[in-house]
Amino acid sequence: MEKFEPRIVGFLCRWCSYAGADNAGVSRMEYPPNLRVIKVMCSSRINPTIILKAFNEGADGVLIAGCHPGDCHYVKGNYFTRRRIALVKKLLEYVGIEPKRLRIEWVSASEGNKFAALVKEMTNELRELGPIKNG
């Protein structure tokens, strides 16, 4: 059987995490090609519907990444993200999707190494977890 390769969708904020992902590229770091990125202005833009939609459309994992707490370009957007994602994780558990398939991380514009390590780690975790079970 072919090895399971998870599909991950990442919503990255334009100011910190998208720039952090660019920084990983500029530094020529390597990470698995399982992640597909959608750029948003702020992580707080992502409503639960979009996350559920991602799983519904076949994503095995969803990454939401924004500026570190206190560093949000829009002052406090990432605090809303943090609260919202905590709730969505509970909802995922309720509908039978492992909450760790949804990750929220803080990646600054200079943290290319953190971003690369994060994608590696998340991909490996999801490889072990396998596809979402239909229940």
Binding site: I38, C42, R45, N47, I50, E57, H73
Partner: peptide, 27 residues
């Protein structure tokens, strides 16, 4: 930033260039 868009329970607010429809079609 779009915080209000994600918060609105009625789906009444949209963010230009990052509407729900645009993001979902991309997704």
């Amino acid at each position: 930033c779009g915080s209000c868009v994600a918060t609105c329970l009625s789906g009444a607010i949209q963010q230009r260039h990052y509407t729900d429809k645009q993001l979902i079609s991309q997704l």
